[in-house]
Amino acid sequence: MTATTKGGLSLTLHVWRQPNAAAAGKMVKYQATDISPDMSFLEMLDVVNEGLIAVGNDPIAFDHDCREGICGSCGMMINGAAHGPMKLTTACQLHMRSFKDGDDIFIEPWRATAFPVVKDLVVDRSAFDRIIQAGGFVSARTGAAQDGNAIPISKVAADESMDAAACIGCGACVAACPNASASLFTAAKVTHLGLLPQGQPERFRRALQMVEQMDLEHFGGCTLFGECQEACPKGISIDSMMHLNRDFLLATATAKEEKSEMGAG
């Protein structure tokens, strides 16, 4: 395959380097030269890393996989913004045409107590999995399902449910929130399932247990700053908080017994 490259950019990167969770980290400066505006942000980091490896240095570690904005692996603060300057765009889908020749770019990992740094830009987001474990599912054992068309679901509800289900679990909402709250993530799942008939039987229990897990994981509370919604690459709306708050309130009012049984607080 042949291809063309447009005029290259020269950039100064300031990147958070931290060898492991226990070690101290610091910002380190790198020059990135001849960067094509058609490159993605991660391809730019690939180029820098190839240069580092060639001279025997440790490349910058960052999580990535799909590079299509859907797996939620990539995530970093770029010039202070989660996933960088472009709205509704993950770091892997951000292209270097969003930057100018000579720019300084500051690259840091997500910062949150619940997301400890593993190395450089890689953080541990397993707290999200545990929030899902607490109730982010419908208990539909394989094989027990009725016909898919047995319960009609209005297109409006299905669409709204899908809007919330689009969350990719990247953690940008937590990183952007001054309280490092996981409320948008949690609310998105509660909304996705709560809008569907299949999600009704466990609806209140789900909201209660997921919120409790969120607290156990040391995420902060939501004070409706709205930064999460701004940072979300999938455009998950803060309106989903309404569903979460309502279900949570109703749950605490009606499910006291269940709660004490669980012993969580």
């Binding site: 599912f137 419908v138 539909a140 394989t142 094989g143 027990a144 399902a145 009725q146 016909d147 898919g148 068309n149 009609p152 679901i153 209005s154 297109k155 299905a158 669409d159 449910s161 899908m162 289900a165 996705h192 399932l193 569907l196 299949q198 999600g199």
Partner: peptide, 22 residues
């Protein structure tokens, strides 16, 4: 055919028609 039933039961938000069917 069982797969679609199973996924609907899990809350997979498949596209729907205005009448509510898949």
């Amino acid at each position: 055919v069982n797969i679609i039933d199973q996924c609907v039961a899990q809350g997979v938000p498949f596209a729907r028609e205005y009448g509510g069917l898949l």
